[in-house]
Simulated scan of single mutants.
Amino acid sequence: MLLLFFIQLTLVLIFLLIGWAIVKKEAYGLISSFRSRPKEEQEELIQNGYPQKTGKLLIATALILLILLPLLFTPFSYAMEVQIGVMVVLLLGGFIYLSKYEVPKKRKKSYIISTSIAVITFGVLFVVSYLGFQDAELTLKKDSFEISGVYGDDWSYEDITQIDLLDKMPEVLLRTNGYGMQSISKGYFKVKDYGNSLLFIYKGHSPYLLIQTNDATIFINSKDAEKTKDWYYQLVEQSGKAE
């Protein structure tokens, strides 16, 4: 939690510093592509107030993110997701708005580009979030078990070496390829004492089902504790293996 706090605080400070430099020190070269524009365009943009409004947008975004920072220390499960969403909406929406202060001959193009970027970004975020928050279901078949959803797969009972039900999730050290959010961990992570592992975890919802096979270490649970226990007992019965 503290790591997330310091990462987001650093982001806030970067936005504040860049915004302050643009507004107070007229460091317009910090704005993307401003320095490469013809002198006449630079002067027209300054006259339109484009650089100053860009700086104020960054400062406003930073202040709103700063206000939202304490959410990380509350029971609210989606604090990080809300902060990321607010930041994306403010920045992308802000840059669409700033297009009205572009030089007239580039204004339409600016609207099209900024709006297209916003639509694509929101589309990608929606798909990623939808897939990431889908429940992972464990299904038992005749000779194998399957975990559904993103990063899911099918594993043979013969390959299982250990099944255990854990009251506490081991410490997750590093995300290598997956969703690492405040409320869920899904994908490949480094786990203390277990190494590279495949996680389908809702944080704070014990117990956790550990399944070790010849080539994978899997942690999975459900928000419903009884469902996780049922997975454990059914898997033990089908495979004949347990801790």
Rank of each mutant, 00 (worst) to 15 (best):
A216T: 15
S110Q: 10
F133V: 05
T61F: 00
A79H: 03
V236W: 01
V23A: 11
M1Y: 08
S116H: 06
L11C: 13
F189Q: 13
I163Q: 00
F200S: 10
M1F: 12
Q83I: 08
S206L: 08
L30W: 04
L3G: 11
S185Q: 15
G93S: 00
W231A: 03
E43D: 08
V124K: 12
T115W: 14
A79D: 00
A216R: 15
S239D: 05
I147D: 03
Y97T: 04
V128S: 11
Y151I: 08
S77V: 12
D230F: 12
E158Q: 15
L9T: 03
M1I: 14
G195I: 02
L16I: 05
D135K: 06
E40C: 10
S116N: 09
S116P: 08
E43V: 12
F133L: 09
G195M: 11
E40G: 08
L57Y: 08
S156F: 03
K223M: 09
G149K: 07
D230C: 05
L92W: 12
Q42C: 07
D215A: 13
Y157H: 04
M1V: 15
P70V: 08
L210D: 13
T74K: 04
T161L: 01
A60I: 10
P104T: 01
G55F: 02
I218F: 05
Y233H: 09
S148R: 04
N196Q: 13
Q134V: 08
F126W: 14
K108I: 14
D153P: 04
S148K: 07
Q52W: 10
G132M: 00
